[in-house]
């Protein structure tokens, strides 16, 4: 697969490490959320046959964490964003 890195252009997927669902960005606040919320955050995932937002880490590259929107059926990649930008857009700036 090729991942179109927003800064570095098309890079081979071999340069990346896959983590999983980009919902891992949405970590609850440990001082206010309890065990149930963290359990949900850590273990409950949707498993779509189709479009999926997922985290990839450019370990053999610039160390960017990326959010890749990939179709799990066709492997078509429709969007690649810096995870930092996605996190900010999701309101992770306190």
């Amino acid at each position: 697969m090729l991942i179109h890195h927003p800064i570095l252009g098309p890079r081979d997927a071999q340069e990346f490490v896959y983590l999983g669902d980009a919902s891992l960005i949405d970590r609850p606040d440990g001082m206010t959320a309890g065990v149930d919320a963290f359990h949900d955050y850590l273990y409950n995932r949707t498993n779509p046959a189709g479009e999926h937002q997922e985290l990839w880490y450019h370990e053999q590259g610039d160390r960017s964490w990326l959010v890749v929107t990939r179709n799990t059926v066709t492997h078509e990649i429709t969007k690649v964003e810096l995870a930092r930008d996605v996190a900010r857009a999701r309101g992770r700036t306190k």
């Binding site: 891992l24 985290l55 880490y57 370990e59 964490w65 995870a83 996190a87 992770r92 700036t93």
Partner: peptide, 14 residues
């Protein structure tokens, strides 16, 4: 190191 970068970029970008 990978984990720290995840925390830095994805969890606490500010």
């Amino acid at each position: 190191f990978r984990h720290l970068e995840f925390c830095r970029q994805c969890l606490w970008p500010e």
